[in-house]
């Protein structure tokens, strides 16, 4: 009789996955077949190897910075705060600085900054490891008379960071070419502990290219001149793009 059908039974028996009828069938065959008894022994020995597979050390997490729509409208900020947990008493007062209180609320779609590099807890002398943020592919129509707004919650701790500038680059069609760029007024952080908020106070100090609809393109944000142990508070730091995204 061919042993082939019993190979699968031997394997399943090793895993305790045979029903009683199959087990009886296998036992009967094993009683008569020395080749399958030998195979059973070799399979048992093979199993011991799984407990001794070599282990490798994990590589560090890559610097992954994104700007993306919040995963859930209500829970996003709270969720991020819970994860990042760098909540300060100063944050409450910083929140008052939202946008320009005298102007209209910005219109458009929100994108939140997220940086995984902050997990690594860089030593103070190290430059900000992530200063560029890139969006996933975007689709959407530009709003008439809309303008980009942003609030970036930062803390440079006890070292002031001078001339920080937000540069926004638009690649509307995803061809890798920058179709429009904007550079905003510089911001200086202070040398005290506590969150500060970099927002748009005036229009861009320089800009090139026209606004167009996004057709699978991306948005890149760069914090120029970022230095020192500059922390960016996630869950609050965001852009409001003058776009109706997702159409």
């Amino acid at each position: 009789m061919s042993c082939a059908p019993f190979q699968e039974l031997l394997s399943a028996a090793l895993d305790g996955e045979l029903n009683s009828a199959e087990q009886a069938q296998l036992d009967q065959h094993l009683a008569d077949c020395s080749a399958c008894r030998s195979l059973q022994e070799r399979l048992r020995r093979l199993e011991t190897g799984f407990a001794h597979l070599p282990e490798a050390s994990p590589p560090p997490l890559r610097s992954r910075a994104t700007i993306a729509p919040a995963p859930a409208k209500q829970g996003s900020a709270a969720g991020a705060a819970a994860i990042w947990s760098a909540v300060l008493a100063a944050a409450a007062s910083a929140a008052v600085l939202f946008w320009n209180p005298t102007g209209p609320a910005p219109r458009g779609s929100e994108l939140y900054f997220s940086s995984h590099q902050l997990l690594q807890q860089h030593p103070p002398e190290q430059r900000l490891a992530v200063s560029e943020f890139r969006s996933p592919p975007l689709h959407g129509k530009v709003l008439d008379h809309g303008q980009l707004a942003f609030e970036i919650h930062l803390d440079s701790h006890q070292r002031a960071c001078k001339d920080l500038q937000l540069e926004v680059q638009y690649d509307f069609d995803g061809d890798g070419q920058v179709d429009r760029s904007e550079v905003y007024e510089a911001f200086d952080t202070d040398d005290k502990e506590g969150w500060e908020v970099y927002t748009r106070r005036h229009g861009p100090v320089s800009q090139q290219g026209e606004m167009k609809d996004f057709v699978g393109g991306t948005l890149a944000c760069r914090l120029k001149n970022a230095s020192g142990y500059l922390q960016l508070r996630q869950g609050n730091s965001r852009l409001v793009l003058p776009y109706h995204l997702g159409v």
Binding site: R42, R45, L46, G49, A51, H52, P54
Partner: peptide, 20 residues
């Protein structure tokens, strides 16, 4: 194709490496 006596002369660590 599975004739032979794999593992008989291998210690656990060696078996683990060959199995990997």
């Amino acid at each position: 194709t599975v004739e032979g006596e794999p593992g008989t002369l291998l210690d656990a660590q060696e078996l683990g490496e060959k199995l990997a």
